[in-house]
Amino acid sequence: MRITQGAFSFLPDLTDEQISRQVQYCLGKGWAVNIEFTDDPHPRNNFWEMWGLPMFDLRDAAGVMMELNECRKVYGDRYIRMSAFDSSHGWESLRLSFIVNRPKDEPGFRLERHEVDGRNIRYTTTSYAVDRPEGQRYR
């Protein structure tokens, strides 16, 4: 099951050219672009790992694309996303985030039903991928 998080996730995967244009838009706005990766795609997993430091003061998307390609070499089998941080006063938060790399095979989520307090049910979603230990989830 294809996961849909962040911007553009209902569209076909962005090409490098399209990613580069989006990054250039962010840089043009003065946002710092970050590269993050994870192998735990649960929508409540807010804490993806960062690839290097946030990239402040860049003028051209080529620098970000260089880092993205480095990151793909190492973590090409995981989810990688770009996020753009706006440091201006009053915002000081992410303005845009989109997935730029995903595993070939995405096993999706299962729904677990816990029966609690008599007839009540509590629902939990779990990614099939996380059944395996970290680092081996998308091999």
Binding site: M55, L58, R59, A62, E67
Partner: peptide, 11 residues
């Protein structure tokens, strides 16, 4: 070095 290169990209 990479940080500087990234800042100089496009220029």
């Amino acid at each position: 070095t990479k940080e500087i290169l990234k800042k100089a990209m496009g220029g």
